[in-house]
Design a protein around this nucleic acid. Structure first.
Ligand code: MN
Ligand code: MN
Ligand code: ZN
Ligand code: ZN
Lengths: 125, 125
DNA sequence: GTGAGAATGAGAGGCAATCTCAATCTTCTT
DNA sequence: AAGAAGATTGAGATTGCCTCTCATTCTCAC
């Protein structure tokens, strides 16, 4: 169930460890935005426990491999989610922290405007 | 020069201390986005030295009074600038950290769209 | 000038994230 | 299938930004 065969090719040369399988499983089954501490908490409930270092380290690896996207939402921590094909952005409630996915054609127009006016290639936010 | 008479009314009941005059002076003369540590460093060069606690505390006060705006740019720290009349946004270079002010009518259209589609009143970013 | 109440400094504390390094695991080579 | 090279892991130390605590000092209305 969790032993994903595709994972081997997705990891592009990086060793496929039990921890990495567990972490990707947890992120894929989160079905929303999840932070490192919560991943650590959920990982601790599984048969293989996991350290916080490993969570942080592998989130960086997944990010680099293009499997996961890091979202710098709210004030303090980063949230993570499986990388989606159509790019999207986020609304964060200042009161309760609720995160809502957001899409609009205006975003692309805005990014084009930034590119033309300032030469910036927009990658975040 | 630094002893600003308007400041008394701007502070709306909060005591006008030498530290607050110095901090507002430093922010106003920075002419760009400045962080707490840099304010502390520049404050230490003046006749009155200043503690990091006082920098952070007063930035919160200035923010609350509407004199200064807090910008959560980059990864780690907040930057501060004098509150501008026409709202603006920012571009941050991922390589060197350079911050560029940015304005566009598309921003307002986007904020309106968010308001209508999701009921969010956009306040940041 | 006095006094009530607010601001300050120095250091402790909080929290997310990174780093260190010895022990363990993966994978490649025989 | 065993061995070896190289990558990963855990635990705890460390960093960086920021807030909190509280005894002392300052501000301002009277
Ligand atoms: Mn999302
Ligand atoms: Mn600005
Ligand atoms: Zn909410
Ligand atoms: Zn740059």
């Amino acid at each position: 169930m969790r032993g994903n065969l595709n994972l081997l090719s997705e990891m592009k040369g990086h060793p496929v460890t039990a921890h990495r399988q567990l972490l990707l499983h947890l992120i894929r089954n989160a079905h929303d935005h999840i932070d490192a501490k919560e991943l650590y908490r959920r990982g601790a409930n599984e048969e293989e426990s996991i350290s916080l270092s490993t969570v942080y380290r592998n989130l960086q690896v997944f990010k680099k491999l293009g499997l996961v996207e890091e979202r710098r939402l709210g004030q303090m921590r980063c949230y993570y989610e499986i990388k989606q094909k159509p790019e999207h952005h986020h609304l964060v409630c200042q009161r309760c922290g609720k995160i809502v996915d957001f899409e609009s054609p205006l975003i692309r127009k805005l990014m084009d405007e930034v590119q033309h006016q300032h030469g910036f290639n927009v990658t975040k936010k």
